[in-house]
Simulated scan of single mutants.
Amino acid sequence: MPDDRRVSMAMVAARAGVSGQTVSRVANDSPRVDPQTRARVEQAMAELGYRPHRAARALRTGRTRTLGLVAQTLATVGNSRMLQAVAESAASRGYALTVLTLGADADIADAFDRLRDQGVDGAIVLNEATALAREAAPAGLRLVVVDSPPDDRFTVVGTDHAAGGRAAVAHLLTRGHRTVHHLAGPAGSFAAAERERGWRSALAEAGIDAPAPARGDWSAASGYVQAQRMLARGATAIFAGNDQMALGALRAAADAGLRVPDHVAVVGFDDIADAAQFQPPLTTVRQDFDALGEQTVRRLVAWIEGEHPTDLLLEPTLVTRAST
């Protein structure tokens, strides 16, 4: 196979039996190529080892085919799952991904400036960083924000967390519990606030006053500490804001000599890969991270290509297991 650096569009054109302009259109994803010709050109590219020169293409088209992603942290399970889904979806469309984490400084305006300096075609903002994005969304940068209230400056893709919270509480109430305690996520998280709103709504619909929620930081350790306090107050049903905190609650119950679900029932949120392996297997609200990543990238790429996509809210699913 020829060396990648020596393969030109002319060589691809000769192999495919088309003009150089047709090869250029295929390389730039132009819709003005019929499918059979595109397939022939792509086969010739693969046989010769041709790779489009990203910088040269950016000069021709004004696009870098690079997306930015901004997150507060990638240490949480939800954010790491979203990063994986976004990266796979972007790669399938021929886009590179530049990732910035805000850390303790949380300077999202600086992050946006850095992304624009790198010439990204658009950016995605995840979860805990969305509140900062609403404060500092820059003009001229296409943004898709995951889990946020509607905003005319960007497109929103998310999970209906409130619906998931309502489903979790309704499920626990049907098991005969007089009330449901909530182990909530961080105060600055939109997703945590929506899950809490769903919890309150379901209790109110049942005519039950909501007990004071406990607040964790998404970690199993925080779930353990807060669940200890709930169990000491006699809680028999706990809706945890994510599966990691639910894991902490399961350990707190075991350490207190309580059987799950005989003495206390626990529901999580997310349905992480290991949730079915907890002891006992965890009832949880599943959000589809693969679909979230796909729809987020799909909408951002559509915006880059001239559309202005609508917001999207995906429905979660309650997955019932032995913890309830």
Rank of each mutant, 00 (worst) to 15 (best):
T236D: 06
M230C: 08
M245V: 04
A240Q: 07
L292H: 01
F269R: 12
I304Y: 00
F289D: 07
P31H: 15
A256K: 08
A184N: 14
S30T: 02
L247Q: 09
A212R: 05
G17H: 11
A87T: 15
D151L: 05
L203A: 13
S323W: 02
M82P: 01
A202T: 01
S89F: 11
T61V: 11
R153E: 00
H171S: 03
L132C: 13
A240K: 02
R60D: 14
N242G: 06
E305R: 14
A227F: 11
V301P: 05
A13Y: 06
P211T: 07
A237L: 03
A235F: 07
L172R: 09
D311W: 03
G158F: 08
D271V: 03
R93N: 09
E196W: 09
R116W: 06
V156T: 09
G306L: 04
R229F: 03
A265Y: 09
H263P: 00
Q72P: 07
F112D: 02
A111L: 01
S80I: 02
D4T: 11
A56Q: 13
V86K: 00
A322T: 14
D151N: 11
R233C: 05
G293W: 00
A75K: 13
V301H: 08
F239S: 00
G17E: 04
H171Y: 10
R142T: 09
L48Q: 11
G293E: 02
A227P: 12
G207M: 10
N127L: 13
A254I: 00
F289Q: 03
G94E: 07
A210T: 05
A210Y: 07
P261A: 00
L300I: 05
R38C: 07
V301A: 02
E194I: 04
A302R: 15
L67W: 06
L312N: 15
G241F: 10
E205R: 08
G78D: 08
A96R: 13
G268I: 05
P211K: 13
A27D: 11
G198T: 12
A273I: 01
R60L: 11
I208L: 12
G268Q: 01
S80N: 15
R116Q: 15
L314V: 02
A212P: 14
M82D: 06
A191S: 15
L83W: 07
A85G: 02
A139C: 01
N79V: 01
T130F: 01
L143W: 09
S92N: 14
S19R: 07
D270W: 02
R54N: 12
T283M: 02
A193K: 10
A273V: 10
P150W: 09
A71C: 01
G49Q: 12
G198D: 10
L100P: 05
T236H: 08
H161M: 08
Q228V: 00
M11N: 08
Q287P: 02
G207D: 13
